[in-house]
Design a protein around this nucleic acid. Structure first.
Lengths: 138, 138
DNA sequence: CTCTATGCAAATAATTTGCAAGCAC
DNA sequence: GTGCTTGCAAATTATTTGCATAGAG
């Protein structure tokens, strides 16, 4: 095994399989949120045959277990990145080259209580993404 | 004409047509961001025959002219709402019933400069949506 | 009359579902 | 061996594109 994430995975009654290990490996070696097709392409390039549908299903399971978080940038598709102990954070994506950078902060901590008070909703989640131009493209 | 939005529309060399008037009317009488299919269904219910593709194309034009803004709530689809003089704002959507409420604030004004400084990106846009449970569903 | 906008068909793209066979444990 | 997983085919859903015709100005 040798992998803490897969260990907790197994504890959950799930099975550790070749596709799951491979998808996890791709996510681990990439430091930005990846789309499903990017992950699949990466696997294919690495001569690892995993069906696209399996990538979808695996990410769905990873998400249920809280192993990955899902983000979107008004692209019409979702992206996934490993949580693995990283603090809650947000991103900025370049309109030009598509490069995604992390923001090491979440400026919303203080806002949540205000939102709940104003709307009477119980806030469960939020999405915050920035779009702009990176140093190379601006 | 009798419609300031369509007036500015016409000034742009665009044509004022039955489908465009109808779609605008739907957006005006609805106070939350609508999906394309919701708009189309609303037209159909009102006995107004407009092709779904026309709804897509019309919203695309409205967006280019800055008449509508596009938002998404991790649903796998986009929603549109009229800007018409309304201040920039964000939303919260209920996991239970799908109800969307406006937030009358954007807590990010002060954050933008910090994001630009931290990332060296030029920030052009941002999306911020909350997801939770409304008073009825919580 | 000219040129944009629309409807209809069809293509793309993202994601989901059904089911028999494969494989982790 | 048992039941969760996978691959493959096919269905769904969201969105876009091509093209001939309709209609706004």
């Amino acid at each position: 095994m040798g992998h803490s994430l897969l260990a907790s995975f197994q504890r959950d009654g799930r099975r550790v399989t070749r596709p799951r290990k491979a998808i996890l490996a791709v996510l681990e070696r990439t430091r930005h949120p990846m789309s499903v097709s990017e992950i699949h392409t990466s696997l294919t390039r690495g001569k690892i045959a995993v069906d696209l549908v399996t990538v979808y299903r695996t990410l769905s399971v990873f998400k249920q277990l809280g192993m990955v978080s899902r983000v979107e940038f008004q692209e019409g598709q979702f992206r996934y990145e490993l949580c693995q102990g990283r603090a809650h954070h947000h991103h900025i994506r370049c309109r030009g080259c598509g490069h995604i950078a992390d923001l090491m902060l979440c400026p919303l901590k203080k806002v949540l209580a205000m939102v709940e008070r104003e709307t009477r909703f119980l806030v469960e989640d939020h999405s915050l993404e920035f779009i702009g131009w990176c140093p190379q493209c601006r």
